[in-house]
Write a protein that binds this DNA or RNA. Structure first.
Lengths: 331, 331
DNA sequence: AAGTCTCGTGAAATCGCTCCCACGAAGGTC
DNA sequence: GACCTTCGTGGGAGCGATTTCACGAGACTT
């Protein structure tokens, strides 16, 4: 049998109400009484039932997180940041994905309606954006971890995509490269545009134009990166520097370059984006724009906790700085 | 204001008990009554409160998962398997790590005592094993995802480590290699022993001895793999095949081999273990023994659900088969 | 000495559901 | 026709906390 507050109350010769007061650090409890109650609690190892507290208080000290997929290379980092932060404040994390399509989303919706958690962390969901938006307007605290663009309708955390693109360009220019190519992410993503803009701006202010045929849209995958390079090579235009909009496509690109007889970095310098683990495992080691993934997760979690505890959130997104990690592929 | 079961009851002109019966598919409800109740439920979009159900029933339809770290390269796959399976059965997943040391474990212990979840999924925890064991004996349903060895005290899922080692050996022998080296995992892990045994057995029955100086202990990291290869090279013994006990060390090993003037696979064929994403991103692509990570997660989740729903579990661990994925590093 | 304030405390309602028990009506048996 | 069963249903006591409200005992006024 579970030990309940009633048992504590009985042993300490007080009412349940008083035990509850002690538990929650409420004032109006005599010091000696409080101490007696606390001793009993320690003795019998009483811990309040999460369920009962949740029911009575209407809040569960649990937050939900909805992620499109857990197998993406940077999910682990973000998740770790989130979990560590929540944990430090005694919050639990309920994890959901929409991996199994509409049915997943349905299950998720049920958990939402069932009030299984107090607030929601979202990683830019592919399809569910509208639904999330509804929830948010209905009063569910939501914070979005936004790797793709900007969604001003939610509180969110993002990175300096534009700045990252600019840094990549500056580094390549500084190392003496003159002919630039880009393998982008999907063009309808805000982050793709931002990375491209930053990159392009630095180039043009350095006097290097970015030839339109040397900007190829891709899809953030390794194979996509390879295909993009084929296109670049087939364009017949020369290039000695390549900016890929994420690490996966950079890796695919490097491989394709090699297969086309270009050495990296001698013939073509390559810069990626993200700094996922593979960047430090591939050959050559990838120079890349680092997103502080773990910090992003942590920041989002902190923001959500803030709203849950009644603090007001700034209405502009939290933006964390990227940083250029120089490795072998673009020394 | 939340819609409650009382409101449904009132609108459908029945008692709360009857609504509850309909909700839980209990028998003894008149078909037409049930239908009326269901209509009301749909109309006002009623969803039972998870908290209240949990309190009343004593079970939350939520399971906890304790993972040492979320950033390990294969965590994502396992997690995805777990989440998908749980979700399909309407269970939620509460995620914990012990990333922040003893304090994390403490927080976790609190959630356990608070009965925040019905059962626990564990990935072989570094330190907490004894504690988990206590919980298990105290009646908490536990299933362990066991990547390191065998822990007969728990229900668990594992892979055919020995078989995997044997497959690696067979493949290398078949491709004409004759001098074998091994970069192991930590020797006190059960999986390391199993992989080594399987490998060694096939070799000796093929008439190739495994020279003790060509078996080097490592730590499952990329740098560790590199260091191990240095030792192998310094031993002065020749080898034309290398079996690394995980992919990360295999990648480190390949790099070190190259730096020592050995070509992969021409001079040395390399086989890894795990088949994490990096295996298909590195250069050359890594031949490796695949662990069905997602399936392992799914299997563990299914086992846990089974016990939660009262079914008996077989008392031997579930063992999922590895499979050899042939890529470039050992064609 | 009567009246007003604090302070610490307990009783009881509440959160939203499940589930046991009791009960009336209909149908079956002898 | 009296007596069981069976079936469908409602009443109400839990689950284990929080929280409101009332109340008695001192301390402080005037």
């Amino acid at each position: 049998m579970r030990v309940t507050i009633a048992e504590v109350a009985q042993r300490a010769q007080v009412s349940k109400a008083t035990v509850s007061r002690v538990l929650n650090g409420k004032p109006d409890v005599d010091a000696s009484t409080a101490q007696r109650v606390r001793r009993v609690i320690d003795e019998i190892g009483y811990v309040p039932s999460a369920r009962a507290v949740g029911l009575a208080r209407g809040r569960t000290r649990t937050v939900g997180m909805l992620a499109p997929s857990l197998t993406w290379p940077w999910m682990g980092e973000v998740l770790q940041g989130v979990v560590d932060t929540l944990e430090a404040d005694g919050y639990g994390l309920l994890l959901y994905t929409v991996n199994r399509g509409p049915e997943s989303l349905n299950q998720f919706a049920n958990h939402v309606s069932a009030n299984a958690f107090d607030g929601l962390l979202v990683i830019e969901p592919p399809d569910a954006l509208h639904y999330i938006s509804t929830l948010y307007r209905a009063g569910l605290p939501v914070v979005m971890i936004d790797d793709r663009g900007t969604h001003p309708e939610f509180p969110s955390v993002a990175t300096t995509n534009r700045q990252g693109g600019a840094d990549a360009a500056r580094h390549l220019v500084a190392s003496g490269r003159t002919r630039f190519a880009v393998v982008t992410g999907p063009l309808h993503f805000g982050c793709t545009q931002a990375r491209l803009d930053g990159f392009r701006e630095v180039l043009s202010s350095s006097g290097f134009p970015l030839h339109p045929d040397l900007v190829v849209e891709s899809d953030f995958t390794t194979t996509g990166g390879g295909v993009a390079v084929e296109k670049l090579v087939n364009s017949g235009l020369e290039f000695d520097a390549l900016f890929a909009h994420n690490d996966l496509s950079a890796v695919g690109a490097m491989r394709a370059l090699r297969e086309n007889g270009r050495r990296v970095p001698e013939d073509v310098a390559v810069v990626g984006f993200d700094d996922v683990p593979v960047a430090s495992h591939c050959e050559p080691l990838l120079t890349t724009v680092r997103q502080p993934l773990q910090e992003m997760g942590a920041a989002a979690a902190r923001m959500l906790i803030s709203t849950l505890e009644g603090r007001q959130l700034p209405d502009h997104p939290t933006v964390l700085p990227t940083s250029l990690i120089v490795r072998e592929s673009a020394p």
